[in-house]
Design a protein around this nucleic acid. Structure first.
Lengths: 337, 337
DNA sequence: CCCGCGGGTGTTATCGCTAACACTGACTCC
DNA sequence: GGAGTCAGTGTTAGCGATAACACCCGCGGG
């Protein structure tokens, strides 16, 4: 026996109409607020709905209206702070606008896995899709995005013919780097995220541009994979550099790894080396020492993303862009010595 | 203009049938693999599907079959490591079984907000609901769970008449506490999570039971809210205790706050005080010092949760229970002095 | 030689809802 | 006082799929 099919099927509009002594259309009007209904009739209908525990059948409604009231989100299956926070921001904005969210997660980003997830969602008859995958392969997957179906990307590549919302990673990196340079360091090292992540590229670019603008030497980039472990390994190799005095890490997790490696090597932060991160995860203020970092407002990102998708569903431009500006948070890891 | 309604509506079964020169039923049979179809006919139909870019209309299918192929998840809107990981575990298991996942997030747990989220999902015509809200109010919200609709809870209260899957928090807390006691400490302090979280209660209980079983004094519990900030505050007040030598924190974030507070107070971990946490967030190995903690396998939790829901949808017991056993991970924060 | 059976296909009804239009009164307007 | 208007309600026709059953045909068995 299926629990839901316990003999008595769910009541339908017609059942409610029967109890209330009206036609099913009147019930429909009461539920949707379309068309006029006498207050007294409305009350009878509402009472009947209550009595039967009626719940509209969304499939039937979707079939006739052609609208499902559902949006799809392609999310990366990770606990990375940014993507997860963005997801909640989107869900919030969507719910307020009366949309439900169906997620399809992708264990590792890649052109075909993202395309699969999108196809998967389209089979669910979502009305629009948001791809949270700040990865170059996502950009490539979206190059083939159909013009007749609304898709938007968060932090995606600028090349795809879909609206894109992103945090200004380059500006954030610039702020962090400027801050370190302003403290008098000759240059700033950088532990970058994976090369195939757009955010990693942008942050690296912002860092490099800033160094060049100031006419200082650009050290060799060390590459990590966002994890604390990779930050730790980067820290172990950086600890051997003779003239190391400032490091900008591509995210807070890697910065944590750096701090750990430096602590083990007897290098004091900020006395011997200053360190900055990116993201402002909630824990960053409690690292040892508390971490200077760049804060991104993910709730805002989620809200704007939904807005862009809503616009696109209404026929808006495929080339819309939105940029959220990040903020530098200064803490002890770049504090006075 | 709506992008999706660009004049040409989506092709239907009938359109495909027209192109393939068969009836719409034959097309349906090809798609669903129901009933026999001559290979040659099948090929023609598949070609027509390809040509038109046909995609089945899930609303129409759901209307007639009464099945939507969608499950609902009520999730807490937070970046807490556990709930977020569990969500991915569930999504994975569900996708493998051909179900889509619709999420409804709850900004703060509470009896009515959770009930709202459940109702919200039922209006989406999900076939079953998973509530990830290890909060006492979730337990209360689920006490009113209807018997004729499948709902399961992750880490929920044992009192609700729904299947529950949980990690054995009490056992995890016991392991951590035993470990600290085995190192020769007179007793172990505890920084607990919020009182209205079941996990917090269970961890506290496991800690308390263990102390009592060993016949050692049970210090006053310090209460936090899972955040690093609250752990930090707990650490500041603990730092004033004269005979402090071991602390078990309710989660890794609070443990981080403790480490920070102790560092500021000049208390060395593990030399002066030993600290253990709970969760094994990926960063825990890179705290200063690396944190001893209790690891929970959230992917496994997600998988088993889906299994329990699937069983329940098939008429299974409302009182099923599943328990996942956690594992102690020993690192430097409880290392040799 | 006829009957039954099963493979392969088509016809029709139906799911529960909304769109579109029809209808009935009462009321307003000139 | 007849026509138009509008509130309030009902009737009918789909939406696009599956379920159920009907049909045709070729083949094997009695």
């Amino acid at each position: 026996m299926r629990v839901t099919a316990a003999g008595a099927r769910q009541p339908s509009l017609t059942d409610v109409a029967g109890v209330a002594g009206v036609s099913h259309m009147t019930v429909s009007r009461v539920i949707n607020g379309t068309g006029p209904v006498r207050p007294e009739t409305r009350a009878r209908v509402l009472a009947a709905i209550e009595e039967l525990g009626y719940r509209p059948n969304s499939a039937a409604r979707a079939l006739v209206t052609g609208r499902t009231g559902t949006l799809g989100v392609v999310a990366l299956e990770s606990n990375l702070y940014g993507p997860a926070s963005t997801l909640y921001g989107i869900e919030n904005a969507a719910r307020e606008a009366g949309y439900a969210i169906t997620i399809s997660s992708v264990s590792r980003p890649g052109r075909s896995s993202i395309a699969d997830a999108v196809e998967n969602l389209r089979r669910q008859a979502v009305e629009g899709i948001i791809v949270i995958a700040p990865h170059v392969s996502a950009g490539r997957a979206l190059e083939a995005a159909p013009a007749d179906f609304p898709v938007v990307a968060v932090g995606g590549g600028d090349t795809a013919p879909v609206p894109v919302i992103s945090v200004d990673q380059r500006d954030g990196a610039r702020r962090a780097t400027e801050h370190l340079l302003a403290l008098g360091h000759r240059t700033v090292w950088h532990v970058a995220g994976p090369e195939d992540w757009l955010e990693a590229r942008e942050r690296e670019l912002g860092w490099r541009e800033t160094l060049e603008r100031h006419g200082v030497a650009v050290p060799k980039v060390i590459r990590g994979d966002w994890s604390s472990r990779s930050g730790y390994e980067a820290g172990r190799s950086l600890a051997k550099e003779r003239d190391l005095d400032a490091v900008f890490a591509g995210n807070d997790q890697m910065a944590l790894g750096l701090l750990r490696a430096f602590a083990e090597a007897g290098i004091s932060v900020p006395r011997d080396v200053r360190v900055a991160g990116f993201d402002d995860v909630p824990e960053a203020a409690y690292f040892t020492p508390p971490l200077t970092t760049v804060r991104q407002d993910f709730i805002e990102v989620g809200r704007r993303t939904f807005g862009l998708l809503a616009g696109r569903m209404d026929g808006g431009d495929r080339h819309a862009r939105a940029l959220v500006v990040p903020e530098l948070i200064v803490r002890e890891s770049t504090g006075p010595r």
